[in-house]
Amino acid sequence: MADETLDASGLNCPLPILKTKKALSKMDAGKILDVISTDAGSVKDIEAFCNQTGNKLISTTEDGGKYIFTIERVV
């Protein structure tokens, strides 16, 4: 289960990334954040974001146009 959930539905690039960053920065290492997005571009972008920032993308799931990213705050 996620510790926090961020609903970024309806928002477009780069807002899902910016809001993810903000949400993660308020969390402690090891905590899990679920991000919900309707922006198809965020599939690649969340992955790139995690690659660059060292946070761990645990899973990506799609459910009828909604993407759910589960991210572990690492640093």
Binding site: P14, I17, L18, K21, A48, F49, Q52, T53
Partner: peptide, 11 residues
């Protein structure tokens, strides 16, 4: 502003 905000979000 898009590139700058995203860049800074990516450390």
């Amino acid at each position: 502003f898009i590139i700058a905000s995203t860049g800074v979000a990516m450390d």
